[in-house]
């Protein structure tokens, strides 16, 4: 295979960052009309073989892509804001994340168990998966590359405060940091603290503050943004 056929489609993540990248310049996805990489060819081949054998139907893949596309941090944000506004929902959410998601019409399609980690003025949670990339996909969508990266996965359990600082999040010494290594059957979402000064915000305005990163625990909701 030619070299230029290899690069644009690899989707290399932080597990294997090419050296010497200027990370500040890395935000734009590269759109190439280049030939598919070997791995894309393998993906097409496996999918077609399974379809030809009648093991999968093409519409199952298409439907699942639609499911993936329908999930984003907006769903988690709705749950968080409902918990902020409705104490009864908050306790149901902390008690049973799956039921609280499904009550809002959000199916936990991957059959995982959702556990909500409640931040308090004295406790801050942050989530990492050191063994792979466990993530609450049904309510947050697919994880960002940095969440799957070697750097985040290898460092967060050992120096969470330094990692949080790289995200611009400084947690005071008097606040306990609890790192959740998500490695087995549960999936976690952080329920962040509602920021001060939002007493007059409506639900929509509050949802805008609840970003993906606040539900992973690497950021705090802030009205200054």
């Amino acid at each position: 295979m030619s070299e230029n056929a290899h690069n644009p489609h690899t989707g290399r993540d932080g597990d294997n960052h090419p050296e010497g990248h200027d990370h500040a310049e890395e935000h734009e996805p590269i759109i190439h009309e280049a030939a598919p990489s070997y791995y894309e060819i393998l993906e097409i081949s496996i999918r077609e073989l399974l379809t030809e054998k009648g093991i999968l139907r093409p519409e199952e893949i298409r439907r699942q892509i639609e499911v993936l596309d329908s999930r984003s941090p907006a769903l988690g944000a709705k749950m968080v804001v409902k918990a902020w506004l409705d104490p009864a929902y908050r306790s149901r959410l902390v008690q049973n994340g799956n039921a609280a998601a499904e009550e809002m019409g959000i199916s936990i399609y991957d059959n995982t168990k959702l556990t909500v980690l409640e931040n308090t003025p004295g406790v801050h949670h942050v989530i990492v998966c050191t063994l792979c990339s466990c993530y609450p996909r049904p309510i947050l969508g697919l994880p960002p590359d940095w969440y799957k990266s070697k750097e985040y996965r290898s460092r967060t359990v050992r120096e969470p405060r330094a990692v949080l600082a790289e995200f611009g999040t400084l947690i005071p010494e008097e606040v306990q940091v609890i790192v959740q290594d998500s490695t087995a059957s549960e999936r976690y979402m952080v329920l962040p603290l509602r920021p001060a000064g939002t007493e007059n915000f409506n639900a929509e305005e509050l949802e805008a503050l609840v970003t993906r990163d606040t539900m992973i625990g690497v950021a705090l909701p802030s009205i200054s943004n």
């Binding site: 932080g14 960052h17 990248h21 990370h23 890395e26 935000h27 996805p29 960002p144 590359d145 940095w146 990266s149 070697k150 750097e151 985040y152 290898s154 460092r155 990692v163 790289e166 995200f167």
Partner: peptide
């Protein structure tokens, strides 16, 4: 090993 924070 700084974390490469970017979106794609």
């Amino acid at each position: 090993d700084k974390i490469h924070i970017f979106e794609r």
